[in-house]
């Protein structure tokens, strides 16, 4: 555990909590892509199956349970409790275009051809693109609430910090995992355009709106 890894995890946790609180406090999930949230729930479910097979640390187990619990709570709020506020018309990204290629890729390129390992690989690949329905939704409506942009910033920052974590681990532990690194780079790059808008607009007190 190094400082990048820890702050990365906390940034990820902050993103998840920010989104849950935003929906809960405003009693609305307007502007939030339910599809991205379903994909994240799928990511956590397929990655953390090792909860049943191996124990790493209390920290590890607790964080996994919190991530999974929050992911399903978010999906529940969007598709059940506050379903009336869900903007399905603008959430029109075709997720099969992500899940099918990612599924194929995880069968083809993995560390070990075993069910748990393939599911882990699937979750890594899927996480790298799971935010696309959300970004697509924002590009479609042309705007995002400021609290939603804070959520996205924390979520992007988390993977960027993991990149530094991997650089650290490579130098000090001689450890690297090519699948996680490549997917992590892809995931971080997808946020770059958003990071630019966040810094130039949101941090200067303006609402994030795209030119028509």
């Amino acid at each position: 555990m190094n400082i990048f890894r820890l702050t990365g995890d906390l940034s990820h946790l902050a993103a998840i909590i920010i989104l849950l609180l935003k929906i809960w406090k405003s009693r609305s999930c307007a502007g939030i892509s339910g599809k991205s949230q379903i994909l994240f729930a799928l990511v956590f479910t397929t990655r953390y199956l090792d909860l049943f097979t191996s124990f790493i640390s209390l920290y590890n187990t607790c964080m996994k349970l919190i991530y999974i619990g929050c992911a399903y709570a978010t999906v529940y709020l969007i598709y059940a409790k506050f379903r009336a506020t869900y903007d399905g018309n603008h959430d029109s990204f075709r997720v099969e275009f992500l899940v099918v290629p990612v599924g194929g890729l995880s069968v083809l390129i993995n560390h070990d051809f075993s069910p748990l390992e393939i599911l882990w690989t699937f979750s890594i690949y899927l996480e790298s693109v799971a935010i696309l329905p959300q970004l697509f939704m924002i590009s479609k409506t042309g705007e995002a609430e400021t609290i939603t942009t804070h959520y996205l910033f924390c979520l992007g920052l988390y993977r960027a910090l993991y990149l530094f974590n991997w650089i650290w681990r490579f130098y000090f532990e001689g450890f690297f995992d090519m699948i996680a690194i490549v997917a992590g780079v892809v995931q971080t790059v997808l946020y770059c355009d958003f990071f630019y808008l966040y810094v130039t607009k949101v941090l200067k007190g303006k609402k994030l709106s795209l030119p028509a």
Binding site: I56, M63, K64, H111, E173, F176, D177
Partner: peptide, 10 residues
């Protein structure tokens, strides 16, 4: 690859 190490990440 050090696969067992990666599982300690989230």
């Amino acid at each position: 690859c050090h696969r067992t190490n990666v599982k300690d990440e989230l």
